[in-house]
Design a protein around this nucleic acid. Structure first.
Lengths: 217, 217, 217, 217
DNA sequence: CATGAATGAGTATTCATTCAT
DNA sequence: TATGAATGAATACTCATTCAT
């Protein structure tokens, strides 16, 4: 038998050789289909249905991703990477506070975030989070978000007593809340407004901000 | 008279006759086990595992709840009822604002709320929500929460531009966020503080509160 | 524990003591309910449903009949006994041929026969037939039917080349056919007419019958 | 194009593409095993046992037939089709009466007919009979049998006062009777003889048959 | 490489039977 | 004795994963 380009646990080809063009396309289709399917059927969506949406056979999915879990992880990682990308882009934006808020807004709004963050895979996902490429991507996103947060806190646009961990938790929760609004735009805005307001510095800080004396940088 | 004391779709005994003492106990054990199991394995936890935790045979579960869905619903409804109870209790508390905050805090903290609210049942839960005892319990909770919110808003402790729907969405999200903190007390408090602060009236409102006159809206 | 009047494999009380009046009544109700239920739900009707129709609890059924199979057998045996009774009654009827035909007609028509004979218990019932009270009742019916058949054959009303075994098979089949007519009276009569005509002696025999010389008795 | 080649409700492949060779073989094995198993265990035979006899895994059965009911139906339909085939073949046979009798004989003898006709599926089979491919196959068989019957009646070999519906009922009953003979060849022949004789025209008709003129009805 | 048929462990649910009340 | 709740083996069906074509 020809030397199989076996898929590793995380869906990366083990051999250095790049995937053939059509294989590349299939991989992308599968990821897209998986994201869409998981989004509207939840984590119990069957591999067969994902295959159906991707217009490939099940076997093809398992050639690219060794297990269903690996596929779900890959979708999740892709979401994390997009968010990290976005965070880095916004890190150079002129208004630190606005940039941070924009990031939150978009993260919450985009379905990727909504679902990747919100439900993931039903049970105890902590194990998955702590190792492998998921952890890496999460760390990367965390770093990018930390930079954003830092800038905003230094500019006194975001209260200083919260750290990145809290922001992540809030992002997760806000995504869930947004999901619960189920399409009601105004409601989503209200929810977001509450969270954003909650993140703004308390009055004392604000007054301090009017104060001309710069605190840092 | 036909003696069949079968479980209805919602897990209530059909006959008016109360359950036997041991049956009562088993029903409670099952509900507790289901809550715990669903909490840590997600909605795909198997009935067999729930039975195991409850130390009963599977058949016993199906005697009390005709389908797994009915069991999950029952757990959910129980959670909603406890919350409604709590909301009503706090409605007569002296400090309207504090009462509202207390409610949120407890709702977010107690595992019932955490899980019943947070993930409910996998995919499209909207159908389940709109009919039957789930809808009823949800309506009831909504009413109780509306009363709490109203009082707090009249006392200018909570900003007036949010309605009960937004509060529910926020509660759902905050529960999810709290779940994501995974045991870190301080983190949970921080998250809660952000949400609570976001719900407080803007400064203008606060000043208005010093004003001795207007009581409503 | 009080000395249980345990039910034997066939639903007869083992102790000589007769059943209490209410127990007697329950036994009868159960048998009737079982017959009715098996008739319209088939052999897969659940014990619980039979209990429901009999307006007793399942436990009561199992006090009277040790297994479901025993109950089904009891119903079957009751049907066989009724038929045997009927056969014996008709054995003294004036017209031997008419008596035989009447027996067939009634056996086929009455639901007891229809179902007891026709479907019994799904699979290989031969084992059940060969031992115990079923076999006894079957033997008894067979004897009574043999007498009826004999008389009719001696009177040249039924062809002489068939024996009781064939008649039984025909009865079973005709019952099934009647069942298949599903309520159409005229159709049932047609079917019966065909079988009856098939049982009449061939022309040669008939001519012989016109012949004044008596052959027997 | 979505590749899903799922089994439809009736066990026909949904896509026009023919099944792979091995799939074909498995389908046949399953049908054969199902027929045999249903024959000796009745309609409550378990899918697992059918799978065992077919030497395939349960999943394979459910790939070919979406439900157990669909499998049973498929077996039934196959039987009906074979019979219809046979009926059509005999429709061109030289002797109309003999052809009709031959058809009955074979239908009763072959196990397909025996079981497919005899017990079908447990309880209320009327629903199944009235729609879908079962109804179609039944209609087709009915048409073919009607042609056979017609020819035989025109030839005065079969009495004119019975219609196709009665013949079907008789066939069902005779199959059941044959089943009850449980292997006794001679007995089966006797039973068949009775039915056949019952179907022959009464003497008056026969005399009419000597009459050279009328060909129809 | 892609396909989709086969596998078989796993899941919800039923039901005959037992046993505490 | 009667009741009906508890038991647990059995059953139909699903789905991630493997493998022949």
């Amino acid at each position: 038998m020809a030397p199989r380009t076996r898929a590793s646990k995380t869906g990366q080809a083990l051999s250095g050789r790049p995937l053939r063009a059509d294989a590349q396309r299939n991989r992308a289709r599968i990821l897209a289909a998986a994201e869409a399917t998981l989004a509207d059927k939840g984590p119990s969506a069957s591999t067969e249905e994902i295959a159906h949406r991707a217009e490939v056979a099940v076997g093809t999915i398992f050639r690219h991703f060794p297990t269903k879990e690996a596929l779900v992880e890959a979708v999740f990682v892709a979401g994390l990477r997009q968010l990290a990308e976005q965070a880095r882009r916004l890190c150079t934006a002129p208004e630190p506070g606005a940039a941070f808020i924009t990031f939150l807004t978009e993260a919450i709004t985009r379905s990727t975030a909504k679902h990747a963050f919100a439900r993931q895979m039903g049970g105890d996902n902590t194990a998955v989070m702590s190792r492998g490429p998921v952890a890496e991507a999460a760390q990367d996103l965390r770093r990018a978000m930390t930079a954003l947060l830092d800038r905003a806190q230094r500019a006194k646009e975001i209260r200083g007593d919260i750290d990145i961990t809290a922001v992540v938790a809030l992002l997760v929760g806000a995504s869930r809340a947004a999901e619960h609004t189920d399409g009601d735009e105004r409601l989503r805005e209200t929810v977001l407004a509450v969270v954003v307001d909650g993140l703004r510095p308390r009055d004392a800080d604000r007054w301090a901000r009017e104060d001309p004396s710069p605190q840092d940088q």
